[in-house]
Amino acid sequence: MTENSLYVLAALFSLVFLSEWLCKHTFLKHISSSLLVIILGAIFANTGAIPSASNASLVYDVVFKYVAPASIFFLLLGVNLKQLRKAGLPMLMAFLLGAIGTMIGVVSSLQLIDYRIVFGENYAAIAGMMTGTYVGGSANFNAVALHYEVFKEGAIFTGVVVADNIITAIWMIVTLSIPVFMQKLRPHKSKVSSGNHLEEADREVESVGPMSLALMLVIGIATLLISDFIANRANDFGFSIPSILILTTIALLLGQLRVIQKQVGAKLLGMFSVYLFLAVVGAYCEIGALIDVGAYALDILLFTIVIVLIHGAFLLICGLFMKSDWSIIAVASQANIGGASTALALAKSVKRNDLILPAILVGSLGSGLGTYLGFLVAGLLGA
């Protein structure tokens, strides 16, 4: 039965449903859906409910080759570069400084572990993945991982994802305390806008019809074909351009068109595709492989912790010199580390409605910028 492609596909869909339901209705709501779907995928694979990495299904190949890149494309369609000016110069500056702090942290943290043994030949790619995810979110992490095929190293990939989720959750608590603690330590004036941006910021639910869904799927498939074609043609002329980078660029360009901005369904397709991809990543995580990576678990955790600590320290020091609003510093940092959704949650938590829309906008900027910086760091380190 597990060799039947329809059965495998139905099982993967079930994993996505189950992870979402558990996160909304049980004590597991404190675990992110992305981490939970990986765990469930691993459980199903190791109990024989779905194929594991050693007996991979054709469905897995399709998910890796087409669904995962499509998820990145759909999520990036929501990046409206023209609206970034609404974020304001202080927020943009803080966000970009945070990205620089992340890059410094990634390179520095590698020196604290024996990265060639812990990560093997994938060390540069993993450094790029961590750069991407801590500049603007998991879409960038997946983009770099897909190009360098790090997902095939199921245990290492999952180990990094687990460490990332743990530190991201802890960092949310840290950034919540930054405005209060730093304002007492080094008081800075803040200019709180009376404007309410909740209407646009809270527009998170999409009402999707067949026409919009069909259009988004057609555009997504066409972009995948075009990206592969351009990458192959460039390779014929001696240029090595990752197709995922071409796809990212096309998505950002399309996202600026009004006709695309009016369409709905991209966010829904993007999130569902991400969960489907992560379920397959979990299936690649066999017990034997997890045991093998266990010896390096502390190294992976240390690597991740130091990245975020250096990012935070760098951004706080810059905030001291620039006398920045500490709430802006906290939200910008969260946009780097957790992405737009956690930055939005933080802005709401510190009761700064004026920062809700800027949080989403710089988070969107990170979704586009993170992939480029991820590939830059990976390339500089020798990937």
Rank of each mutant, 00 (worst) to 15 (best):
L278V: 07
A297L: 15
V350R: 09
L269N: 08
K267G: 11
V331G: 05
L257R: 08
W326F: 07
I317P: 04
S324C: 05
G338F: 05
K348N: 12
A279K: 00
M322T: 09
V331Y: 01
E286M: 09
S324V: 13
T342E: 03
L276C: 13
Y275H: 08
L298S: 13
I291P: 02
I329M: 04
V259D: 01
S333P: 03
L268A: 14
I337D: 13
D354I: 13
I310L: 11
Q256N: 10
I287Q: 12
V281W: 02
K323P: 03
A345G: 05
L355M: 13
W326G: 03
K262P: 00
S349T: 15
A313V: 15
R352T: 06
M271D: 00
V280F: 12
G270K: 02
Q334M: 09
C318D: 01
V281D: 00
Q261G: 06
N336R: 02
I300C: 08
L302I: 14
I291F: 14
C318G: 02
A343V: 09
V264E: 04
G288D: 15
N353G: 14
I260N: 04
V274E: 05
L290P: 06
L278F: 09
F321D: 04
K348G: 00
L346Q: 07
A335M: 04
A340F: 07
L257V: 11
Q263E: 06
K262D: 04
F277L: 03
Y284F: 13
L301G: 00
V350G: 00
D299L: 02
L316W: 10
V259Y: 04
V306K: 07
I337P: 00
F321G: 02
G282T: 13
A295S: 12
G270P: 01
A332P: 02
G282V: 10
S273G: 08
I260Q: 12
L346K: 04
D354C: 03
L320M: 11
I260D: 02
F303M: 11
C318V: 14
K351Y: 15
K262T: 07
G294D: 12
V264H: 09
I305F: 13
L315H: 07
L302N: 03
L301S: 06
L309I: 15
E286I: 13
G338V: 09
G294H: 03
S341R: 01
N336L: 03
L276E: 01
A295K: 10
A335Q: 02
L290F: 06
I300F: 05
A343F: 07
V306L: 06
V281K: 08
G319I: 10
E286Y: 06
Q256Y: 01
I307V: 11
K267I: 11
T304F: 06
L315Q: 10
D325T: 10
A340N: 02
L276N: 01
A345S: 11
A332V: 12
L301C: 08
T304G: 06
I307P: 01
D292T: 14
H311C: 09
D354W: 05
V350Y: 10
Y284W: 08
T342Y: 02
L355C: 08
V293P: 00
A297G: 05
N353M: 12
Y275M: 14
F272Y: 04
V281M: 15
I337A: 11
Q256A: 04
S341I: 06
K351D: 15
N353R: 14
Q263N: 06
S333H: 01
L278R: 04
D299P: 09
A330W: 11
